[in-house]
Amino acid sequence: MHYKQPARLQAVVLDWAGTVVDFGSFAPTQIFVEAFAEFGVAVSLEEARGPMGMGKWDHIRTLCDLPEIAERYHAVFGRTPTDHDVTAIYERFMPLQIEKIALHSALIPGALEAIAALRGKGLKIGSCSGYPAVVMQKVVALARENGYVADHVVATDEVPNGRPYPAQALANVIALEVDDVAACVKVDDTWPGILEGRKAGMWTVALTCSGNALGLTYEQYRALSPAALEQARSRIGQTFEGSRPHYLIDTIAELPAVIEDINQRLARGEMPQGC
């Protein structure tokens, strides 16, 4: 028996917030700000966006490790945040997240059309998120009402380690019965999500404008001048450099063209691990 490289893609693993729903990725970031505020600690939206893509407990732990935020916490409580404190913030974050997730549940323009095009090419649609399962249940239900149903969903607390570990992406490979990770594409708007795909041995596509990195509404994004948009793309591209995405595109609407390009590369014998 000899190994045979895949000649075509079999599946796409899509992130959720900032990728398929919630243009600008506001649902998780704004709630971090509100959760910390309930403990009397100010966190800016920009600070909250920094670790986006991680599981939410890890995200809060990372924020608490920032010297500026740790200092603000110390000013209120007389100590720097412990894991117990992180858990307390997380336990306040969760009900707020569940309560307000519907406010940011709209599908990203072009998402349904792009996903339909991928299905038309015979691709399976996997998905994963930094949200825990209890939040994902509501996200999935809201997406279904808007016409989007993934073939498989993996929440961050359904695997031993969340992003940037590859467990969620690989759980999709197993569930979707894909026979080679090189026949998969991971699409995400955060560097932990791109690292997840890279570590899983997949092709990776980073979204520069629909998610956390740009942090604008769709209307604000569309209102950017060509010069401002190009400057933003350049800045965001630099933030993704360390995670080494294979492709950078503005939004999921551009994904079908990328899929076709990857299929051509696979047909030529190229593999994601070597690029």
Score class of each variant (00 low, 15 high):
Ala182Trp: 01
Gln5Asp: 03
Ser243Asp: 14
Gly162Cys: 14
Thr239Lys: 13
Glu270Trp: 15
Pro164Gly: 15
Trp16Ala: 00
Ala143Ile: 04
Leu207Phe: 06
Cys184Asp: 05
Lys199Gly: 12
Arg92Asp: 07
Ala116His: 13
Ala206Cys: 05
Ala169Leu: 08
Ser234Phe: 10
Ile108Pro: 09
Met136Gly: 07
Tyr90Ala: 02
Ala114Asn: 11
Glu47Arg: 01
Val205Tyr: 02
Gly120Arg: 00
Asp58Val: 08
Phe77Val: 03
Ala42Glu: 15
Val185Ala: 09
Gly78Ser: 06
Ala27Trp: 13
Pro6His: 01
Leu63Asn: 10
Arg119Asn: 01
Ile69Thr: 05
Arg8Tyr: 09
Lys121Gln: 15
Met52Val: 05
Ser127Glu: 03
Val21Pro: 09
Leu66Gly: 01
Lys121His: 09
Glu71His: 02
Thr19Phe: 06
Lys56Thr: 09
Leu224Glu: 11
Glu113Arg: 10
Leu103Gln: 11
Ser225Cys: 07
Thr80Trp: 07
Cys209Pro: 02
Ala37Thr: 03
Leu170Glu: 03
Gly162Trp: 15
Met136Gln: 09
Ala27Gly: 08
Arg144Lys: 04
Ala114Gln: 09
Val21Phe: 10
Thr190Phe: 12
Tyr131Gly: 05
Leu214Ile: 11
Phe77His: 12
Glu47Ala: 00
Ala11Leu: 05
Gly242Lys: 01
Val21Ser: 14
Lys186Pro: 02
Gly122Glu: 05
Val12Ala: 14
Glu113Asn: 04
Gly242Thr: 00
Ser129Ile: 06
Lys56Leu: 06
Leu142Phe: 02
Asp250Ser: 01
Glu99His: 09
Phe32Asn: 01
Gly193Phe: 11
Asp189Cys: 08
Arg79His: 15
Asn263Trp: 04
Ala169Gln: 12
Cys64Phe: 11
Met54Val: 12
Ile194His: 14
Ala17Ile: 05
Arg8Met: 08
Gly197Trp: 03
Gln273Asp: 15
Lys186Trp: 05
Ala106Phe: 14
Gly126Lys: 13
Lys100Asn: 15
Asp261Cys: 04
Gly120Cys: 02
Leu45Asn: 04
Asp189Ala: 07
Ala117Trp: 00
Pro28Leu: 01
Val33Asp: 10
Tyr165His: 12
Arg79Trp: 10
Ala169Thr: 13
Asn172Glu: 08
Tyr90Asp: 05
Leu63Tyr: 01
Gly197Val: 02
Ser105His: 04
Phe93Ser: 00
Ala75Met: 08
Leu63Gly: 08
Met271Phe: 14
Pro160Tyr: 06
Leu112Asn: 13
Ala102Pro: 10
Pro272Leu: 10
Thr208Val: 07
Tyr165Val: 00
Gly269Glu: 09
Glu260Trp: 06
Val181Glu: 10
Gly55Arg: 08
Val21Tyr: 15
Ala133Gly: 03
Leu112Glu: 15
Gly197Gln: 06
Ile125Val: 09
Met202Ser: 01
Leu142Trp: 08
Gly53Gln: 07
Pro245Cys: 06
Pro226Gly: 00
Asn146Met: 15
Ile31Asn: 08
Val258Pro: 04
Arg8Phe: 13
Glu260Asp: 15
Ala7Tyr: 15
Ala232Val: 05
Val20Ile: 14
Glu260Val: 04
Lys4Pro: 02
Ala169Ser: 14
Pro67Tyr: 12
